[in-house]
Amino acid sequence: MCGAPEQTAELPAGTDLSKESVLVGKVLAGGSPVGGAYVRLLDGTGEFTAEVVSSASGDYRFFAAPGTWTVRALSRSGNGQSEVTVGGPGLFTTEVSVAA
């Protein structure tokens, strides 16, 4: 299904980190988690790839192919972004700060 599943810190059952690349992290404002932010995954050319809504604990998660990605968050308290390079399979963690 195409709808974004609920975002949790735990990976879904069946995720194989020896084969899949998973990008996770939190959206933060002044160090506090921001729930309900729209988190957008943009590819190396800045093109939109996917979007999820952060959980109450500020968590987001993407399954991404290797490459350079921008994680951009939009929230009522402001917007922000971080870059991350996915070199291969495994878990990649990046936090995104939005202006408070």
């Binding site: 599943p5 590819d43 939109f48 996917a50 993407f62 399954f63 192919a65």
Partner: peptide, 19 residues
């Protein structure tokens, strides 16, 4: 779909398990 789905690299959007 996204370029990675189009090319065949991914079978689903990047925020979903690739099942």
């Amino acid at each position: 779909r996204s370029p990675d789905e189009f090319s065949g690299k991914l079978l689903a959007p990047a925020h979903l398990p690739q099942e």
